[in-house]
Computed example of a mutant assay.
Amino acid sequence: MPEFSVAGDDLARRQQTFTELYSNHHSWLHGWLRKKLGCSQRAADLAHDAFIRVLTLAEPQSIKEPRAFLATMAGRLLIDGARRRRIEQAYLEALALQAHDAGMPDPAAVHAALEALEKISAMLAGLPTKTREAFLLSRLDGLTYSEIAIELKVSASTVKNYVASVLVHCYNALYAEDSTA
C-alpha cells in the first residue's frame, strides 16, 4: 500500500509542478513565439507542443530556469518545423520536376510520400540535436562528414558515429513497429 501513496504523491507533485509552470509561463511563451513568428495561431500550436514535451520529462520539477528552458525547447521545435517544411518543399519541387517531365504524379503517391516524411521526422525527433543535425546535413544537404564536422565543431569520426547511430535508431524503430503490427 505505501507504494501507491508514494507513486500517487509523485504524480500529484508532477501535476502541481506542470500546472504551476503552465500557469506562470504559457502566456509569456505564447507572446515570445508570436513575436518571432508573427502568427498567433502558430505560436499557440508551438507553445502547446513545448508544454507537451514538458509533460514527457521524467523530472519537470528539476527545471531551474523555466523561461530559458521553454525558449530553448520552443526554439528547437521551430528548427524541427523548418526542417520538416524544407523536406516537404524539396519533395514537392522534385515532384513538380517529375510531373513536368512525365505527367502529374498520383495524388495517393504524394500523400504516401508526405506521410513517410512525417514518420521519418517523428523518428528523428527524439534524437540528440547534434546527432539529428549531422544526419540531416548528410542526407538532405549532401555534405561530407568532414564538412559536417566543421559545421558541428566535432571530428569526422564523431559525425560518422552520429549518422550510424541514427540509422540504427531508425532501423530499430521500424523493426519495433513491424513486430507490433
Rank of each mutant, 00 (worst) to 15 (best):
E59P: 00
K36C: 07
A47E: 13
A96R: 09
A134M: 07
G126E: 10
P2N: 06
E88K: 04
A149S: 02
K130T: 15
Y175C: 04
L33M: 11
L140R: 07
V154A: 04
E20T: 15
E20S: 10
Q15F: 12
Q61V: 01
N172R: 13
L77W: 06
H111W: 07
T17D: 06
F69P: 07
R14I: 13
P107F: 02
V54S: 12
A96N: 03
P2R: 15
L95C: 12
Q16S: 12
A96G: 01
E59I: 01
F69Y: 15
L97M: 09
L174E: 00
P66K: 04
R34S: 10
E93M: 05
L143T: 00
A47R: 08
T17W: 01
S138F: 10
L92E: 06
T72M: 02
D80S: 07
F51V: 05
R67M: 13
L57D: 13
A149V: 00
L114P: 00
T72R: 05
T180C: 04
L57K: 06
L114W: 03
A134D: 05
R83I: 03
T131S: 00
F69S: 07
L137Q: 12
E115D: 08
A173E: 11
W28E: 11
A122C: 05
S62K: 09
D101F: 02
K35W: 04
A82M: 05
A82C: 02
W28N: 14
I148H: 02
S23A: 15
L152N: 11
A7H: 12
T19F: 11
A108W: 09
L140I: 02
P105K: 02
G126T: 08
E3L: 06
A113I: 02
A58Y: 12
H169E: 07
L140W: 08
Q15N: 12
H48E: 15
V54F: 08
D10E: 11
L57Y: 09
G8S: 10
H100V: 01
L124E: 08
L77P: 09
Y175S: 07
E177P: 00
T56V: 01
I148L: 09
D10Y: 03
S40Q: 11
G142T: 02
Y91A: 13
E3C: 03
A122D: 07
I150M: 06
K35P: 00
L92W: 05
K153H: 10
L70W: 15
D178E: 14
L114Q: 14
D141N: 06
L70E: 02
R76H: 13
E59H: 13
A181S: 11
T56Y: 05
L55G: 13
